[in-house]
Design a protein around this nucleic acid. Structure first.
Length: 422
RNA sequence: GGAGCCAUGCCGGAGCGGCCGAACGGACUUCACUGCUAAUGAAGGGUCGGGGUUAAACUCGACCGGGGGUUCAAAUCCCCCUGGCUCCGCCA
């Protein structure tokens, strides 16, 4: 939800943002007029209610003889109030609809345009060279007896898999490494529910643009979350936070579920794009004035993970038209995947400024003592998909894979994954 | 699954259909006093929104788990829902 004050005071800024995203700027004018109608209806209702409140006191004070006449009048006022209240509610609902069509205000400097208009901020690690024909992650995973797609499909269908042996251990090691680093950075670990109520799904915005990607359990009316961001954002819904000690940082580990409804035929091989995976997600509540700096800190922690794992990657500043509706800016880190000859997204980090918190009612007390919406940010610190880049990047001619040093302590000192059979 | 009890502000906890945005206690903030991180005294605070103001002041409305209803008037009465606690049953 955008700031209604901004809508009144500076609609031009909102329009500029809408244009950068490639959205229709007329939604802004519609929202403005909806806001005006809303306030007019509210004013009418409130003054009638004030009259009713005053009159009620007279009724009480009146003598027995006067009462019947007064009550007759009061009944009329009550009917008027009821009607005015209904009109006010309608106008309110209409405004909510109009305002919710407007996406978050893009931060100055975000590249305009669509998916292909991202700006590469830097490339790190170069393109890995092999003096043999590199195998893709699935072939490696099968040689190592680490990934079993066939049985995944047998049990659950396409895009499901088993991680087995060193594959299972690798994922747990990766998550543990990420969690330890998050702890060192002051994050509070959290294992959230992955089934959430409709209002939480709605409040975090995932029933909007991602609605068709979300699994729903109709018999219980619960949704399976595609990221722990949902539960982490809902965690402090309708609360006033104490940020006097600085930002509140959570590291949420959860399984994530995505129906991938729009991706038929894309990335069908291996575990690059699957219905279920695990992820360690960073989520931060902070002072809006500090949000951009925090965003860069999140990015820093992500890059540090990439480097610890010896991956080649690039950092991109995602273009306005490719941002989610809640994000004001988004940095993705994409790792180089040798057999694809290109970079693939491993992390994503969004600054949602106050857009998400406004809808969820998460506020803090500013120095002046006023309650104001907090800024929320989120970013990936590890996911199952990283296994793709790790296996491919560190493979050797015989199909063995060198274990990045940072992971070894979490794998009992194991230095190499060795193929189970030739 | 059956039966009962409960849901009020930061916390505890009162609350008669109108004088209740809500007693009282604690915590908190400010001031005073005390030679000193204590004691005492005084004062002050909630949230959301509308109007108003450069900003305040001020003012109006809403909010006592959520949603309906009764009534001129609901924290208070009725219904539904959600959540919590206790007991019984069932499954481990």
């Amino acid at each position: 939800m955008i700031d209604p004050q901004l809508l009144r005071n500076d609609p031009e800024t909102i329009k500029r943002s809408q244009r950068a995203r490639g959205n229709d700027e007329s939604t802004v004018d519609l929202a403005i007029s909806a806001d005006e109608s809303r306030r007019a209806a509210l004013g009418e209702f409130e003054s009638l209610r004030a009259e009713q409140n005053q009159f009620g006191k007279q009724v009480k004070a009146a003598s027995k003889e006067e009462k019947p006449a007064l009550i007759a009048k009061a009944q009329q006022i009550a009917a008027d109030v009821k009607a005015a209240e209904a009109r006010s509610r309608e106008a309110d609902a209409a405004f909510d609809v109009a305002a919710s069509r407007i996406e978050n205000i893009v931060i100055e400097g975000v590249p305009a345009g669509g998916e292909e208009n991202f700006v590469t901020l830097r490339e790190v690690g170069g393109v890995p060279e092999f003096d043999f024909e590199p195998r893709d992650h699935l072939e490696l995973g099968e040689m190592l007896d680490a990934i079993d797609m066939q049985r995944g499909a047998k049990v659950s269908g396409a895009r499901f898999y088993f991680l087995k042996g060193v594959g299972a251990r690798l994922e747990l090691a990766l998550m543990s490494l990420a969690l330890d680093r998050a702890l060192a950075a002051g994050f509070v670990p959290l294992i959230p529910p992955t089934l959430v109520k409709p209002e939480i799904m709605q409040g975090t915005g995932f029933l909007g643009e991602h609605a068709d990607e979300v699994y729903h359990l109709p018999s219980q009316d619960l949704f399976l979350t595609g990221t722990s961001e949902v539960a982490l954002a809902g965690y402090h819904a309708d609360e006033i936070l104490d940020l006097s000690g600085g930002a509140m940082r959570y590291a949420g580990w959860s399984t994530c579920y995505r129906s991938e409804a729009g991706s038929h035929g894309k990335d069908t091989r291996g575990i690059l794009r699957v219905h279920q995976f695990n992820k360690l997600e960073m989520f931060v509540y902070t002072d809006p004035a500090d949000a951009e700096a925090e965003h860069l800190r999140l990015l820093g922690w992500q890059e540090s993970m990439m480097q610890a794992l010896g991956l080649s990657y690039r950092v991109i500043d995602v273009a306005a038209g490719d941002l989610g509706s809640s994000a004001a800016r988004k940095y993705d880190i994409e790792a180089y995947v040798p057999t694809q000859g290109t970079y693939r997204e491993l992390t994503s980090s969004s600054n949602c400024t106050t857009f998400q918190s406004r809808r969820l009612g998460t506020r803090y007390r500013s120095e002046s003592g006023k309650t104001t919406p907090v800024a929320t940010l989120n970013g990936t610190l590890a996911t199952t998909r990283w296994i793709v880049a790790i296996l491919e990047t560190h493979q050797q001619a015989d199909g063995s894979v060198r274990v990045p040093e940072a992971l070894r302590p979490y794998l009992g000192g194991l230095e190499v994954f060795t193929p189970v059979s030739a």
